[in-house]
């Protein structure tokens, strides 16, 4: 399967007041499930919000699904084909699951006649069909998270951005969710930020490790696991790879701050 690049990021810089969240970041992502790892404050959420076209950026160039979201027409076209689950998932507690997912389908401009079926499909894929008419406020945290995933996939997005989607899911739900991710990854570009290394090891084909707004590592999850050495901290190969890659990146930056990218 040829992997065409669907997300081009060139020299992306994002600042929040005085701090630099993303520092001239370059990134290429294609179809498949792509993990975004990194310590807290590494810039994972900043990157996802920029890619979701909700956050502005200071400088750099973006190309999402072949169009430039800085141009209004391109922005609209990308947004129709985008799915986004923010870390803090704001919703309407008085809505039923079905109402909320249908509302998001309306916002995403899913053709009117296709909405009911799209809503059913999305609810089914996250295992919420049985609770379709339950109000969101009556659902458990894990189920609300699944509502978030359902709204993200209701338009069958080509680019799916999920910020910490497994937070609040119990282990069994997490396993199911990873299976769904792999399924979505066969035809879409899925970018998942997570702090759970095992999410990456089991669900992601590729991994980008961010540290202080820069790319510390980019490769397949197998390569990340192989990057670990015996004295790196961690309980699994991926965890050891994670700490080793982070350590290497930091020492390289300390040695020559300009050269490290």
């Amino acid at each position: 399967m040829t992997t065409e690049t669907t997300v081009h990021v060139d020299g992306l810089t994002v600042r929040h007041r005085r701090t630099t969240a993303l520092d001239a970041l370059d990134l290429r992502i294609g179809r498949g499930v792509h993990g975004l790892l990194g310590p807290n404050g590494a810039g994972k959420t900043s990157l996802i919000r920029v890619l979701a076209t909700v956050a502005p950026y200071r400088s750099g160039r973006l190309e999402l699904l072949g169009v430039d979201p800085a141009v209004p027409a391109g922005r609209t076209s990308v947004r129709r084909r985008l799915g986004y689950l923010p870390q803090e998932f704001g919703h309407y507690p008085g809505f039923t699951v079905r109402e909320f997912v249908a509302y998001m389908a309306w916002l995403k401009e899913v053709p009117k006649a296709a909405v009911p079926e799209a809503v059913e499909r999305a609810m089914e894929r996250v295992g919420l069909t049985g609770r379709a008419d339950a109000r969101i406020r009556t659902l458990s945290g894990g189920m609300v998270r699944r509502v978030g995933i359902a709204q993200a996939i209701v338009n069958d997005p080509e680019l799916l951005l999920l910020d910490e989607p497994t937070a609040g899911l119990d282990p069994e739900q997490r396993v199911e969710f990873r299976a769904l991710l792999r399924e979505l990854g066969t035809t879409s570009t899925v970018l998942v930020s997570t702090h759970l290394v095992e999410d990456v090891a089991t669900a992601c084909t590729e991994v980008t490790l961010l540290d202080e707004g820069r790319v510390a590592f980019c490769g397949t999850s197998g390569e990340l696991a192989a990057a670990g050495d015996d004295d790196a901290a961690g309980d699994s190969p991926t965890e050891r790879g994670y700490t080793a890659a982070l350590r290497r990146h930091r020492s390289a930056r300390a040695a020559s701050p300009e050269a490290a990218v």
Binding site: K112, A113, A114, V115, P116, E117, E120, R121, T129, A132
Partner: peptide
């Protein structure tokens, strides 16, 4: 089962075609 749950979304076109679109998806 999907037809049962989303029948009210049927826009008024041919029912056969509508069912087929669901099935092929």
């Amino acid at each position: 089962v999907t037809a049962w749950r989303s029948a009210d979304g049927h826009g008024g076109g041919a029912v056969g075609g509508w069912l087929w679109v669901i099935a092929v998806r």
